[in-house]
Design a protein around this nucleic acid. Structure first.
Lengths: 200, 200
DNA sequence: AACCTATCTTGACAGTGTCAAAATTGCATG
DNA sequence: CATGCAATTTTGACACTGTCAAGATAGGTT
């Protein structure tokens, strides 16, 4: 038994790596995160990180997973507020996009091709994402009952399409296709109208 | 004056490079396209491509630009068909997603972060994209007049949000987040309902 | 025939991810 | 307390990447 599992040489390399990596991608983008530079900034040799993460892919998966937990926390705190169902939904949509834009690099890892297509999403990442999605679908079902989202299809379908819409909006900004963030709130408002109108 | 500008050693390297690159990304993804391997498959030395494209970035920009022209062609041929406005729109939505999924790697270059955020979109790429977008907005205006798309906002806003929705749907599949393409057509149908319902 | 210039090649450099083997170090046991 | 074990870190190495600089080649023009 040990009191602190990773107090050997560095302190807590795993944690340090994640924090440093998170900072680097936030400030310089995922593509300029290299295992070697990361090791260097943490003050450790090139290959040390490989004893804490199998891969660069594994490191990125861990970052993405953190993102899902953060996002879930946000969702829960929003649902805890006493809002009308409609207000709650609107606030969530705004919050979703705010999160996406503010943590754009993490968002990209969570929902981008880096991990899901080009990479190899870890089992725990898949689990985290699935859980988030399930929570969303459950809420969609409620919102349908409350006549806020359209009921012309199953919760799954409505959940998929509305999520896709938010996701698409997020990506346009995140990926640098749209740059005037001034238009954003207007676009979000219009998107909400699009999503809700079918239930009116 | 020369009859064939690039008949020197290879034939038409520029064209060969684009074709080969297009094939490689289609079959193996953008991330496994390397300038060196590309040069090799075309049968030319490592740095030969650099006399035809300043950069890897420039090569990718050219590929993306081609994509925009293809997509524009598709749009025009669809508008040439004699459809009701509504049918025309529906067909376009389906066609848009079909194109995105079939040419997923090109689509990613056209609308992804590789060029627009991490990279450096060329002027002609920007122009092509802007033109495509403008054509879309013009059409949206028509569709609003024909009461197919909602009129509760400007053509620009409606164009932005509906495009974002389609884009988001496309990305979910392209990026490997959604894998059951069986659900696709259902999701597209629902998406169309979402987009159009506000005008009913 | 000579030259110019577009084209292509060879050599080189800095950077990447990551494997294998060696070195270090802290903890628990004899 | 010493010894050994296992977790941790390092050094060395390899194959790969993009791309610059300098030289070779060869087609068209004068």
């Amino acid at each position: 038994m040990s009191t602190l599992k990773t107090q050997y040489h560095h302190g807590d390399l795993t944690k340090s790596l994640l924090e440093s990596a998170s900072l680097i991608i936030k400030e310089q983008g995922v593509e300029s995160l290299s295992m070697r530079k990361l090791a260097d900034t943490v003050g450790v040799s090139r290959t040390a990180p490989y004893h804490h993460f199998k891969d660069k892919n594994a490191l990125l998966c861990a970052l993405a997973e953190q993102g899902f937990y953060e996002q879930a926390k946000m969702l829960h705190s929003l649902r805890a507020q006493k809002n009308t169902a409609e207000e709650g939904f609107k606030k969530y949509v705004h919050a979703y996009l705010e999160y996406a834009l503010q943590h754009n690099e993490t968002y990209d890892l969570m929902y981008g091709r880096t991990l899901w297509k080009a990479g190899n999403p870890s089992d725990s990442l898949k689990a985290a994402s699935k859980q988030t999605f399930k929570a969303w679908i459950d809420w969609v079902e409620e919102l349908q009952e409350q006549n806020i989202l359209p009921s012309n299809n199953t919760p799954l379908r409505i959940g998929q399409t509305t999520w896709a819409s938010l996701h698409g909006l997020a990506r346009l900004f995140i990926d640098g296709i749209y740059l005037d963030t001034e238009d954003l709130s207007d676009m979000v408002e219009q998107m909400i109208k699009n999503l809700c109108s079918a239930s009116a």
